[in-house]
Amino acid sequence: MKRSTLALAAALCLLPLSAVAHKQWLVPSATVVAGTDPWITIDAAVSNQLYYPDHVAMRLDSIAITAPDGSVSKPQNPATGKYRSVFDVQLAQQGTYRIANLSGGVSARWDTPESLAAAKAAKDGKAPADGAARGGFLRNATPEDLANKIPKNALNVQVTEGVGRVETFVTHGAPSAIAATGKGLELAPVTHPNDLFAGEEATFKLLVDGKPAAGLEIEIIRGGTRYRNAQDELKVTTAADGSFKVTWPDAGMYWLEASTTDARTSVPQAKQRRLMYVATLEVLPQ
């Protein structure tokens, strides 16, 4: 390995685990466009470093493109490779488009008498830990899966509902208002997301099912983490009305993430709902 490569590898080893966690993102080729028939291209990936595709491509099955008039369409010219997906969006209307990857589903995990016995034997040193029988797990399960695929002798069954939104915003011409969907965890802009400048303060709100989300911590990271040893993340917390303020230190693409849990599930078997929100925002120089 070259000396520079070894130095980079050593630097990455010193980063905290949160710094190298997988991050989902959508990055547009432009966030503000003009013209009579503008198009943009979106990169979509799940990566360790922002915004460098180095882990896995994002699936495009659940991409929703909401036009300024509220109509929803699918990606054009979609393609998925090993590390990233790409698609095009024709911005036929004047105003702001909301481009999002929506996720939702139910997961379940459980123990069995055999897995508990094996775990106890491993703990007591009577069996190798790697050889211990494990319980079961379902991902993207349906209510029918919960009824039919979880064994009758299952113990400690935990069913969780997940709702996520990964999005970005693009404006053709003059910005337009962005209406909240009232579903899950989402951003309600006060400052328009396509009107952000380095050194200026911006205000946003976080909502859960259309209501203010108080006390949520938000992590904000500028892209280009591959080329610096520190994440330089910003952390802010929402006020009682769900609002938070950010003063952007530099121009660039920023990754904004928040998550929370509650018990407002839509699946009777689920006792917990996990909510996740991610946005990519472009901050322009003064």
Results as ranks from 00 to 15, higher is better:
Phe204Ile: 06
Val157Tyr: 05
Gly135Phe: 05
Asp130Ala: 15
Ala129Gln: 10
Arg226Leu: 14
Pro151Gly: 00
Gly125Asp: 00
Val159Leu: 06
Thr237Phe: 02
Gly184Val: 04
Thr142Arg: 05
Val159His: 05
Val190Ser: 11
Gly199Glu: 12
Val208Gly: 03
Ala188Asp: 09
Gln158Val: 15
Gly223Gln: 11
Lys211Arg: 11
Asp232Ile: 08
Ile221Gly: 01
Pro151Asn: 01
Ala179Leu: 14
Glu217Ala: 13
Phe137Met: 15
Leu138Met: 08
Asn194Glu: 06
Leu138His: 05
Ile178Ser: 01
Val157Gln: 05
Gly125Gln: 03
Ile220Gly: 07
Val190Met: 11
Gly173Val: 05
Gly131Ser: 15
Ala122Ile: 03
Pro128Ile: 00
Gly184Arg: 11
Gly224Thr: 00
Gly223Leu: 09
Arg222Gln: 13
Val236Asn: 04
Glu161Leu: 07
Val159Asp: 02
Thr238Pro: 07
Ala132Phe: 04
Thr238Leu: 11
Thr112Pro: 00
Gly199Pro: 12
Arg226Met: 13
Asn229Gly: 13
Ala133Gln: 15
Asp145Leu: 04
Glu217Pro: 11
Leu207Pro: 03
Glu114Trp: 09
Pro151Gln: 00
Pro151Arg: 00
Arg139Val: 14
Asn156Arg: 12
Arg165Cys: 08
Glu233Ala: 15
Asp124Ala: 14
Lys205Glu: 15
Gly182Leu: 02
Ile221Ala: 06
Leu216Lys: 00
Pro128Met: 01
Thr112Gln: 01
Gly215Arg: 00
Leu185Trp: 08
Val166Leu: 10
Pro175Ala: 05
Ala174Tyr: 08
Leu187Ile: 10
Ala179Asn: 11
Thr203Leu: 13
Glu200Tyr: 10
Pro212Leu: 08
Ala119Ile: 08
Thr112Met: 03
Gln231Thr: 15
Ser243Thr: 09
Ala202Tyr: 04
Val170Met: 01
Pro189Phe: 00
Gly136Lys: 03
Ile150Val: 13
Gly162Asn: 13
His192Lys: 05
Leu234Cys: 09
Ala122Asp: 04
Pro189Gln: 02
Ala198Arg: 07
Gly125Asn: 01
Pro193Cys: 03
Asp145Ala: 13
Asp241Pro: 11
Val166Cys: 12
Asp145Thr: 09
Leu187Val: 02
Leu216Met: 04
Arg134Cys: 08
Lys183Arg: 14
Glu219Gln: 15
Leu155Trp: 06
Leu146Met: 10
Glu114Val: 14
Ala147Arg: 15
Thr112His: 03
Glu161Gly: 04
Gly199Arg: 07
Ala154Asp: 07
Lys235Ile: 14
Asp232Leu: 14
Gly242Asp: 09
Gly223Asn: 09
Ala202Lys: 06
Ala213Thr: 09
Lys120Tyr: 12
Asn229Cys: 12
Lys205Tyr: 11
Asn140Leu: 12
Gly125Tyr: 02
Leu185Arg: 09
Glu219Ala: 14
Gly131Arg: 13
Glu161Met: 03
Val163Phe: 15
His172Gly: 03
Glu219Thr: 15
Leu206His: 10
Trp110Lys: 02
Trp110Glu: 00
Ala121Ile: 07
Asp130Gln: 13
